[in-house]
Write a protein that binds this DNA or RNA. Structure first.
Length: 424
RNA sequence: GGAGGAGUGCCCGAGUGGCUAAAGGGGGCGGACUGUAAAUCCGCUGGCUAUGCCUACGUUGGUUCGAAUCCAACCUCCUCCA
């Protein structure tokens, strides 16, 4: 039995529901299992929707922001979001489009990760009773007993069909091993959907484009038990230069401030390529489309205004308005030409200046270089400035004489990485 | 189960006894140009208490004055046959 998927038919589709209209307009919709029926359902009344997230790290990252924003809009339009954290499924690992198995995590690690994720989610959503919720699928997955599970759900899945999914095929075609454990992941995700439907009347699942197969499975399983479920996927986000979005030199762009500072988070968005600005404004901010249209008309240097607004808006949503403003001011100060930031970005013990503090080790300590050798190369490459002065001596030692009256010292590597160091 | 092939730095990939910290490309970083963009050009890209030392070519041993390169065993992957 196949599902009638409407893929990319959004172009000629005129949605009647406010929610779908908005999501399509802002670029959230990629594929949907049944656009018209979903539209009708959204017009009818409040719909409960969910998006699932693995608990593989103690913070979500920019890649997760897309489903989060989609859910956020739904909540704003009076629908109900459920953030499903895969505490149970994380112990298996989704094989979708991966060439290798994921590492499995133990319960303690998963528990820790859940707490970190909650920190972010709470800022983005109203999770109060009746408005939205965050649930862990371990709640039900842990309860199943094997034979019971096979009896209740195993009969609804055929290996024949499971084999046809791209996520499985790709692994098999590549002659990579696919364990039974991973193979069954899609069953679990389908069960999640049905379970959420049973418990909370959830009828819509949102996921990344790589989740299409898993989502369809859930919708199918729902139908077998007599419920019409819906799902849609989000576009795969790549930057204008073709790279997968969300990576910087230092790795993933985390949403949790403890993993990535508000300053760096703001800078990430500030550095968006021109070609991506409008798309990102639509997807990652709450700004009305009329305002985005205005920003889209900016040309040349003025585009920078749009980028600042983008950065501040996103940071405000994810880290809060105060953090966003501080990050912006800090960025403005650091890049306005004046080397001094408005506030110290690093505080170090004054004792360090008693002995000899090598410039190289300071660069490492500030995170501007991964090793002394790398720091040395930066100095030799004429990219390091101390208090605004180009420093070319890689054996340079810093002393109290190098600090200003307020016992600060500014260090810059290249044009973008700057720090104000306070010794106190 | 049998025959053959492959495992090299962040990634891809050259290298069959000293000139190899290892060609080339990608990525990344830095510089010039700019607008904290894009494009282009140039430089750098294992570590260290540094004219030297240490670590590194799947793993462990061995041959040799000297090994990524030769030998043995093991591990992993691929191709063909059964």
């Amino acid at each position: 039995m196949t599902i009638h998927a409407t893929i990319d038919t959004t172009r000629n589709f005129r949605p009647k529901s406010e929610a779908l209209a908005l999501l399509i307009e802002r670029g959230f919709l990629h594929q949907c299992t049944d656009l018209e029926a979903l539209d009708a359902k959204l017009v009818e009344g409040r719909v409960t929707a969910y998006a699932g997230f693995d608990a593989t790290a103690d913070s979500l990252h920019v890649g997760h922001l897309l489903p989060l924003m989609a859910m956020r809009w739904l909540q704003k339009l009076d629908h109900k979001p459920i953030l499903l954290i895969g505490g149970g499924t994380t112990r298996i690992g989704d094989p979708s489009f991966r060439t290798e198995s994921r590492p499995m995590l133990d319960d303690a690690a998963i528990e820790r990760n859940l707490r970190g994720i909650r920190d972010t989610v709470e800022r983005l959503f109203d999770l109060s009773e009746g408005e939205g919720r965050m649930v862990n699928n371990a709640e039900w997955l842990d309860e199943f007993r094997f034979l019971e599970f096979l009896r209740d759900f195993g009969t609804h899945f055929t290996v024949n069909r499971m084999m046809t999914f791209d996520s499985v095929r790709s692994r098999l075609d590549a002659q990579q091993p696919l364990s039974v454990l991973e193979f069954c992941y899609m069953m679990l995700q389908a069960v999640d959907f049905v379970e959420l439907n049973k418990r909370f009347d959830c009828t819509l699942q949102i996921g990344g484009s790589d989740q299409w197969g898993n989502i369809v499975n859930g919708v199918d399983l729902g139908r077998r038990s007599g419920n019409q479920l819906f799902g849609f996927t989000l576009p795969l986000l790549t930057t204008a230069s073709g790279a997968k979005m969300g990576k910087t030199a230092d790795g993933a762009v985390w949403l949790n401030p403890s993993r990535l500072s508000s300053f760096d988070f703001w800078q990430f968005w500030r550095n968006t390529a021109d070609a991506d600005v409008v798309r990102f404004l639509k997807l990652f901010t709450d700004l009305p489309l009329s305002e985005i249209d205005r920003l889209a008309r900016l040309e040349g240097q003025e585009v920078n205004e749009a980028k600042k607004i983008l950065a501040t808006q996103v940071t405000s949503i994810v880290h809060g308005p105060e953090a966003a403003r501080a990050a912006m001011e800090q960025g403005e100060a650091l890049f306005s030409g004046k080397e001094d930031g408005t506030q110290p970005t690093h505080v170090l013990s004054a004792d360090l200046l008693d002995g000899s503090l090598g410039l190289l080790s300071l660069l490492v300590r500030l995170g501007f270089a991964g090793s002394n050798s790398e720091a040395r190369r930066l100095v030799q490459g004429n990219s390091v400035r101390v208090n605004g002065e180009l420093e070319t001596d890689d054996r340079r030692q810093l002393t109290r004489n190098d600090t200003r009256e307020d016992r600060t010292l500014s260090i810059a590597v290249g044009r973008k990485r700057k720090a104000l160091v306070q010794f106190g």
